[in-house]
Structures are given as C-alpha cells and as structure tokens.
C-alpha cells in the first residue's frame, strides 16, 4: 500500500504506564474521603420521615446517640425494651455526661458551643426513654440537638 511507512519493527503502542498513576490518584481520593462508620448499630433504628429538615454540616462536631429496640440477636441479653446506645455499646442515661465529655475533648475549645447531638431514634419508640435522654442532655448543658429524620416526599 502506498500509505504504509516502514519504521522498523517497534510496534506503535500507546504507553499505558501512566494509567495506574491516574487510577491510584482516584483511589487515594476515595480512600481519604471515605468515612467508615465507627459504631456498629446494636439497636434497630428506623428514623421518622418529616418535611422540615436541617443538614448537619460538620461531622467532627456531631455526636450520635442511638435509641431503639435491641436487634434480635441481643434479645436474650438485653431484652426488647428500647435502649440507648452510645458509641458501640448499650448504655444507660447516666453514661451520657461522660460520653459527651469524651467527644468534647476531641473538639477545639472555641468550637465547643457548636457541638450538636444527633438523636437517632427509632420511630416506634415511646417518648419516655427519649425524654430521659433529653433531660440528661439538658443537665449536661448540651442544648443543640438534631432529631435525625429522613425526607418525606409529599
């Protein structure tokens, strides 16, 4: 053919050597931005659906309190009554001040006022246990509270 040029035997491959670098860059991005959930849920939490929602902005300023009925595999040990979970263990209301304090020392002092407590409460729980937690939060002067909920589509 007229257009074929003879350039010796080296094949004109595109170098893919830099492809791994690009992929690794993406990989590191995802590895860095991924926040692995630190607490394993031991209670069933199905948050209610509402319309008036506020977004929680900074994760480092939020501590999570879970309230719900224990999962089935914990029924033998903890029964079926709604329980409070702090961090990754079942707790009583009395443990809340220590839990809040433990979170507080990780936050710079000038931002202590911005700490929010996110209450992840199962919708079927009765208010009694929630009320006790609220009272304890008020006693610990943790007044910024966010009732975790999902968006309701109307």
């Amino acid at each position: 053919m007229a257009f074929t040029k003879k350039r010796g035997n080296t094949s004109p491959e595109v170098s893919t050597a830099s492809l791994p670098d690009i992929i690794f860059m993406l990989l590191f991005f995802f590895m860095v931005t991924t926040v692995l959930r630190d607490a394993e849920l031991k209670v069933k939490v199905q948050t209610p659906k509402v319309t008036e929602l506020t977004k929680l902005e900074e994760k480092s300023l939020v501590n999570y309190l879970y309230i719900g009925r224990p999962l089935e595999r914990y029924h033998d040990l903890y029964g079926t009554k709604p329980r409070l979970q702090l961090g990754d263990k079942f707790s009583s209301v009395k443990d809340i001040p220590l839990f809040l304090e433990k979170h507080k020392i990780k936050v710079p002092e000038n931002r202590h006022g911005q700490i929010t407590s996110s209450l992840r409460v199962d919708g079927d729980v009765t208010m009694g246990v929630v009320q006790d937690v609220k009272t304890e939060l008020r006693k610990s002067n943790q007044l910024k509270v966010n009732y975790s909920a999902k968006k309701r589509e109307d």
Partner: peptide, 13 residues
C-alpha cells in the same frame, strides 16, 4: 450519608 434532621434547641436545665 447526608445527615439530616429536625434541629432543636433545648431549654437550659
């Protein structure tokens, strides 16, 4: 996870 909820300010104890 987009964390959303109803923001509430509790009264002081």
């Amino acid at each position: 996870v987009e964390d959303t909820g109803v923001q509430v300010k509790l009264p002081p104890w």
